[in-house]
Amino acid sequence: MANLNKVILIGRLTRDPEVRAFGNGGKVAKFGFAVTNRRKNSQTNQWEDEPMFIDCEAFNRGDYGTLANQIEERCRKGAQICIEGRLHLDQWDDKASGAKRSKHKIVVESLQLLDRREDGMGESGGGGGGRATSSGPARGSAPAPSRSGSGFSNDTGDDGSSGEEIPF
């Protein structure tokens, strides 16, 4: 039987990313993320927002991975982003009570900025910049450019994509 652990969400950062460097030169960016679900209240017949708060982390992986660096440079509290990643269950022992604790988080593998760039560097007439990735050397055909925002990922080009923008 096949297994798949893939998450794609659009939401907003609830806090600025916290970045830590490892002794081996790696880096992790941790940030809070909120997604809002809407549901109709059967008693008031009004639509209500139901926010869900999720902890996320992104790593610099491999020789070409710079996802944590990109998040540190470009993402701030309130920014709207699209993340792709996988669910991970963190487990630990509570120091105060000794009880086992756990929570799900998302390990981000790629991210796309959805807000308009305000520094004038985005594409004209579209609503944002193109797709930037942290992938390795070019191999095969490039992925289609994003509609808006800037995307970046930890992909190392194993899917045959070069990570370069297509100029059309």
Rank of each mutant, 00 (worst) to 15 (best):
N45E: 11
T36K: 04
K30V: 14
G26F: 02
R20V: 14
A21T: 11
K30E: 14
G26L: 07
K27C: 14
K27S: 14
E48K: 01
Q46T: 14
E48A: 13
D55C: 06
K27N: 03
E48I: 13
E48C: 02
Q46H: 04
A21Y: 05
D49S: 11
G26S: 10
G25Q: 07
A21S: 15
D49T: 05
D55Q: 07
N24K: 00
V35Q: 02
F53E: 06
Q43V: 15
F33W: 05
P51H: 09
E48Q: 12
P51L: 04
A34T: 15
F33N: 04
S42Q: 07
D55M: 00
A21C: 09
K40N: 06
K27Y: 08
F53Q: 08
A21E: 12
G25I: 04
D49M: 04
N45I: 01
R20E: 11
Q43F: 12
F53L: 12
T44A: 10
R39M: 08
E50P: 02
F53M: 08
N37M: 04
E48G: 06
V28S: 05
Q46A: 13
G32I: 08
N37G: 07
F31Q: 04
Q46V: 13
V35R: 04
F31G: 12
S42C: 01
G23C: 00
M52H: 05
R38M: 09
A34F: 01
F31Y: 12
N41D: 15
T36R: 03
I54K: 02
T36E: 06
F33G: 11
A29E: 07
P51F: 14
K27L: 13
N41V: 08
V35L: 03
K30N: 15
K40T: 14
A21H: 08
N41A: 11
E48V: 15
T36V: 15
D49N: 14
F31N: 07
A34S: 14
R38W: 15
F53D: 11
A29F: 06
P51S: 06
V19H: 02
V35Y: 05
N37A: 13
F31D: 06
K27V: 10
G25C: 10
T36Y: 07
A34G: 09
W47L: 05
A34C: 13
A21N: 15
T44V: 10
V19L: 10
T36C: 02
F31P: 15
E50F: 03
N37S: 12
A29S: 14
A29K: 02
K40E: 09
Q46G: 06
F53N: 14
V19F: 10
R20L: 12
V28K: 03
R20P: 08
Q43S: 13
